[in-house]
Design a protein around this nucleic acid. Structure first.
Lengths: 228, 228
DNA sequence: TCCTCCTATTACAATTTTGTAATATTGTAC
DNA sequence: GTACAATATTACAAAATTGTAATAGGAGGA
């Protein structure tokens, strides 16, 4: 049941739209001015905004910019004007669609549904590293190696992420420590060593794994793909 | 002290390059064939590869593709050919630069330094959400709100990240629980509620904060920007 | 006012995480 | 082989995390 904020100063149009959309199952919040709309934003949480461009106390497009700081809900402009520059300005100020009056209510419905569909589909794609046989997902806090998913503690995940993001290149103890802890201390070596040891154990890294974590003789670590 | 892997079948050129680059302070590893080079890759960890296109047992460009699975170190092709399609093929197979023989050693040096500079500069830009007065850094596990950085536990960070990535829209208990735990259970409500309570406390969210976490009457949470 | 229901916070205990220190292992030079 | 040094692993205790359960707070209705 999506919530729609209707901003429109013409009471007749407002009534028609409201009745129609409520019958469609939407929860409707109304505002007849920029001021009221800004206030309504504080209490209602719209999934979509229908915004008249011409309002008694301001420009709908200016309001659109304010609104964007509060929500990413799609905005559909409603207006009598149909000049091209008006359309361009509407899109430029952050609008997602533009309907010129007079319009058919079923067209309105279709466009609303299209916008809602789009914004729902926008899946939460998590930031991750993807390499052959290896995925590191910072959101989930997991690493998937050779098809097995392991949930790793933060420190181990951070190290693994650093190594994987620069696969095949040397990363020093100092770099790792500095990146993770923000500063460097005397025996950063030991801490990193222990955590890499834990990481290897957690990942069940052995001779059969696709990757190996190797140490150089100069105090650096490398993540390498193993080939047979 | 970067490590450079030199793949070249002409022993004279090899010797000259090696001596010159070692004098410049680089650690040099040599290979005179694709086979040897592939083997060397297992033990040395090059920061840069100088690769002859014509090798006795294969094409340097094919080797370049293999190499890319093991490292992202820059590859500079060395070749006698100077036809354009050869250059294009070199870049297409993953090369970063292309030098035609005969070449000046100082040019070689300059191009090597340029590549190393570029690959070092490639800062580890962490995945993060940036909103006005709010940054969420999944790698560091921190949220910076109104200039104060807070280190958050995983669960709270996950919830905050979800809310922030869809600022201003309703997210249900179920969505949050399902995204974080992979499945849904009977009393997901309580778990999420407690963690959001902890999150608010950790962030010191109060009336002065730029954002608020509000609950709707339908079992949903919203992150909203507060305006004055 | 009192009751009820729903939400928010706090308490608590089991588990996990993590830096440090101790021990074991490996490699290398003599 | 032995000794030495460097690396790798394990042990351990303090601290943090986290789900569940208990308690507190608050709005709305009788």
């Amino acid at each position: 049941m999506p919530h729609i904020l209707l901003v429109e100063d013409d009471s007749d149009i407002m009534r028609i739209n409201r009745t129609f959309l409520e019958n469609e199952g939407y929860t409707i919040h109304c505002a007849d001015s920029v001021q009221t709309a800004a206030f309504k934003l504080e209490e209602c949480v719209p999934d979509l905004v229908l915004l008249d461009v011409m309002l008694p106390d301001g420009d709908g497009m200016d309001f659109c910019k304010i609104l964007r700081q509060k929500t990413q809900a799609p905005v559909i402009f409603l207006t009598a004007r149909d000049e091209n520059d008006s359309v361009v300005m509407g899109f430029r100020s952050g609008g997602d669609d533009y309907i010129t009056k007079p319009y058919d209510l079923n067209v309105l419905k279709a466009r609303i549904e299209a916008q809602l569909r789009r914004s729902v589909k926008q899946q939460p794609q998590h930031p991750r590293i993807e390499l052959p046989y290896l995925i590191i997902d910072l959101f989930a806090g997991t690493a998937t190696l050779d098809g097995n998913e392991y949930s790793l503690p933060q420190r181990e995940l951070q190290i693994f992420y650093m190594l994987a993001s620069q696969i095949g290149s040397r990363i020093s103890y100092h770099d790792i420590y500095k990146t993770i802890y923000g500063c460097d201390v005397e025996d950063s070596k030991n801490t990193i060593r222990v955590n890499i040891s834990r990481l290897k154990k957690h990942l069940n890294i052995d001779d059969m794994s696709t990757y190996e974590i190797a140490a150089t003789s100069e105090g650096e670590y490398v993540l390498r793909r193993v080939m047979f």
